[in-house]
Design a protein around this nucleic acid. Structure first.
Length: 422
RNA sequence: GGAGAAAUGGCAGAGCGGUUGAAUGCGGCAGUCUUGAAAACUGUUUUAGUGUAAGCUAACGGGGGUUCGAAUCCCUCUUUCUCCGCCA
């Protein structure tokens, strides 16, 4: 969430930046400010009361010791009265605090200055393109036909075991998954990332920390017995490592990478565009996460984008990079680049990575700070990106590398695969 | 799953109803000494809110209660440890 301090001191700027999401939020910002003012005034009264009560308590203690029972009794009554008042102030304060956090939770992150105002995906800006249209045989097959033809991914079997959106990878299909995961992890490690294998079930506090809760409750699978959530992305457990942590300045930036399965309920998605691997309930993803000092975070975002570019180019997949417009960005993001790979047989772009700077939005919820050289604690910036999400990469690899003699997979994967083609 | 014990500052570890935001030790930081370092000595060393500031307030796992007053008593939740059972 946005910091109260930012809302108080840079109100106009925040309103301007929020407007990039295509909706005016000045009302809610003003509400926050007025609730905060009311809250602070109550708080001052309450603290004065408590100070009085503390003094009285000390006096009473002394009076009892010196044996002046009568005066002690008088003061005791005085203190009891004071307590009534304190209770009602506490109740008011709690209520205002509740309102305040409620409002703060409703406000999305303020988009960075580089972000274009807009609402729909059509308004995203293409900032980079690479690669050429793959040369395919006559009547190229979409991946869901190829997976069936070569018997490498079985959607029907997944239906039987679990349900739609949970495919079974078989034989070379399973090995391709494993190869991609290892390839992505190794590339990240070469780039200086530290590998983490986190839990894939997280508690409520972690869901709040990265912003999935309270809003996107319905997007996650929830185990009610133990009140745990299946992660929609490794971002959740990996970023939550730093919840309630004060880092040393020299530790930053922290670069972590982790492979996890990801689970998304995808409530409300349907239609041809979700066929095959295009949209799944369970999929594999390698995620890169960085924790940075504010002044370095945008340079780091570029570095992360370059890392993903390198992966796409080694895989030889035609792709483009979009800078999302305000309205298409996630709730917590200040700036997001989406990578889309070209799917030769479907003749459409598929999103394969989303790389974002959250600035202090997550850090504020996480209470993740670092101690500056001057000894002050300041919120860090958090960033993350998919590097990469597997299913659509697999779809594009299968489609774009299909030939009449089989699917000839790119060279960078050969050492990981143990074979060259399917 | 059953039985028991515990949770205090960066760490270790006192305190068990009234100058205890918290003894003591270690660690960290600054200084004295030294050519430099070590040792020794001296000082300092949590976070958040509020206020121009002095200050005030809150926090001893979380939440609630008793009391004029709680780290200290009571309830509850969570976590950790030990023993037993089960088990990849």
């Amino acid at each position: 969430m946005l910091t109260l301090n930012a809302i108080r001191t840079q109100k106009e700027e925040i309103i301007t930046r929020l407007a990039k999401r295509g909706k005016d939020r000045s009302d809610i910002i003003n509400e926050v400010i007025s609730i905060d003012e009311a809250k602070r005034s109550i708080q001052t009264q309450l603290e004065n009361n408590l100070a009085k009560a503390n003094t009285l308590a000390k006096e009473i203690g002394d009076l009892f010791k010196s044996g002046d029972k009568e005066l002690a009794e008088t003061k005791r009554n005085e203190s009891t009265e004071l307590k009534e008042e304190t209770k009602s102030l506490e109740a008011k304060l709690a209520e205002l605090e509740g309102q305040l956090t409620q409002k703060l939770y409703e406000i999305p992150n303020a988009p960075s200055h580089a972000v274009k105002t807009g609402i729909t995906p059509e308004e995203n800006e293409t900032v980079f393109e690479w690669g050429t249209e793959p040369i395919l045989p006559e009547n190229p097959k979409p991946h869901w036909e190829l997976t069936e033809k070569y018997d490498i991914i079985d959607f029907e079997l997944g239906n039987k075991i679990t349900g739609a959106g949970f495919p079974v990878y078989k034989g070379k299909g399973a090995r391709l998954q494993r190869a991609l995961i290892n390839f992505f992890l190794d590339e990240a490690i070469k780039a200086g990332y530290y590998e983490i294998q986190p839990p894939i079930l997280v508690n409520e506090a972690s869901g709040f920390g990265t912003g999935q809760l309270p809003d996107k409750e319905g997007q996650m699978y929830h185990d009610k017995t133990d009140n745990l959530y299946l992660i929609p992305t490794a971002e959740v457990p990996i970023t939550n490592i730093y919840r309630d942590v004060i880092l040393k300045e020299e530790e930053l930036p922290i670069k972590n990478v982790g492979y996890t399965p990801c689970f998304r309920r995808e409530a409300g998605s349907y239609g041809v565009h979700v066929r095959g691997l295009n949209r799944l309930h369970q999929f594999d993803k390698v995620e890169i996460v960085q924790i940075a000092k504010p002044e370095q975070s945008y340079a780091i975002l570029e570095e992360m984008v370059n890392h993903v570019k390198g992966l796409m180019e080694k895989l030889g997949l035609k792709y483009r990079i979009l800078r999302l417009c305000g309205g298409d960005m996630g709730f917590a993001s200040a700036l997001t680049y989406d990578f889309e790979a070209w799917s030769g047989a479907q003749q459409r772009w598929l999103e394969v990575s989303s790389t974002s700077n959250f600035e202090t939005f997550q850090a504020n919820r996480l209470k993740c700070r670092y101690k500056t050289k001057e000894g002050k604690n300041e919120l860090v910036h958090t960033l993350n990106g998919s590097a990469l999400a597997l299913p659509r990469i697999v779809a594009c690899l299968l489609e774009n590398y299909q030939t009449t003699e089989g699917i000839k997979l790119p060279e960078c994967l050969h050492p990981y695969l143990g074979f060259k083609s399917i």
